[in-house]
């Protein structure tokens, strides 16, 4: 199957001056395990442009997290080419080109909220005043003012995840990698954080790569949906999703939304068919 690369010729508003942030060509990743090698990623081709909100969706084991970890230089590909901001992933990581939000908040329990957010800034050795300003700004961005001195265990799961988002944002990266950040949260919290995230994306014009296995979440958030299937992990469809940037949760009942969700579901079903 041949796939459209990126959104060239798409209807995106940013098509004119969109420049690719992530370029992936013929990417393969094989994990050597004791019994048999696992083909985690097979011939992945993908371009992600500046300002895109791209979701990777697929069943467990389809390699969506692995693909994201490869972009972040947390995994090394077996073959193929990948570039982030025109650099290799390793160089991009060293330049702190991205902020990474994990499945779990991964807060350090011995650090207060503000100390957790300041952690990457300490590592970057920013001046103290700058650190303080960024912590204040980013905690405000995720609506967590007043919780600076709390320890992680004093917060709810949703608040902890918001701290981890503030921590990723405090690096001020143009690229935000989010690995199922709301997977462990209840649906009400999740809806709320989805809206917040969308507004954040709209305000900051960042490029976001987002891993999820929820169809409504991917359609609601994304400007582009990458549908993946397992064994071996590969891309089976890339869907442009150009709902207005200032969408609200109500849009989930609109025909456009349902049409895109339907196409995503079809894609997932096709990817799964040989399984039965």
């Amino acid at each position: 199957m041949h796939l459209p690369l990126g959104s060239e010729g798409g209807t995106s508003l940013m098509t004119e001056n969109a420049k690719p942030v992530i370029e992936i060509e013929k990417l393969n990743l094989i994990f050597e395990t004791p019994d048999a090698p696992v083909h985690a990623l097979s011939d992945v081709d993908l371009t992600i442009n500046a300002g895109d909100f791209v979701s990777f969706i697929g069943p467990s084991g389809c390699g969506k997290t692995t693909l994201m970890r490869t972009i972040a230089d947390l995994e090394t590909p077996t073959s193929g080419h990948i570039s982030v901001n025109g650099m290799s992933p390793a160089e991009a990581r060293e330049k702190r080109a991205y902020g990474y939000v994990f499945q779990a908040p991964a807060l350090y329990p011995w650090r207060t909220v503000e100390k957790n957010v300041v952690l990457p800034l300490e590592i970057m050795k920013l001046p103290k005043a700058e650190q303080k300003a960024r912590v204040k700004k980013n905690l405000a961005l995720v609506n967590l003012e007043g919780f600076e001195k709390k320890f992680p265990w004093q917060l709810s799961g949703g608040m902890q995840q918001r701290v981890s988002i503030a921590r990723a944002l405090s690096v001020e990266p143009d690229l935000l990698l989010m690995d199922e950040p709301f997977g462990a949260l209840d649906e009400i919290t999740r809806d709320h954080l989805n809206e917040q995230l969308l507004r954040l994306w709209d305000q900051t014009k960042k490029t976001v790569v987002f891993v999820t296995h929820s169809i409504p979440e991917s359609v609601f958030l994304s400007s582009k949906i990458v549908v993946m299937s397992p064994r071996p992990g590969k891309i089976i469809d890339i869907i442009d999703c150009n709902l207005p940037r200032d969408r609200t949760l109500d849009i989930r009942e609109s025909p456009e939304f349902l049409a895109i969700a339907h196409r995503v579901r079809e894609g997932l079903r096709a990817g799964h068919s040989y399984d039965d």
Partner: peptide, 12 residues
């Protein structure tokens, strides 16, 4: 692993 990966992403 997560706590270590986090440090990795900051290239600490």
């Amino acid at each position: 692993v997560l706590q270590m990966d986090l440090m990795q992403t900051y290239s600490a």
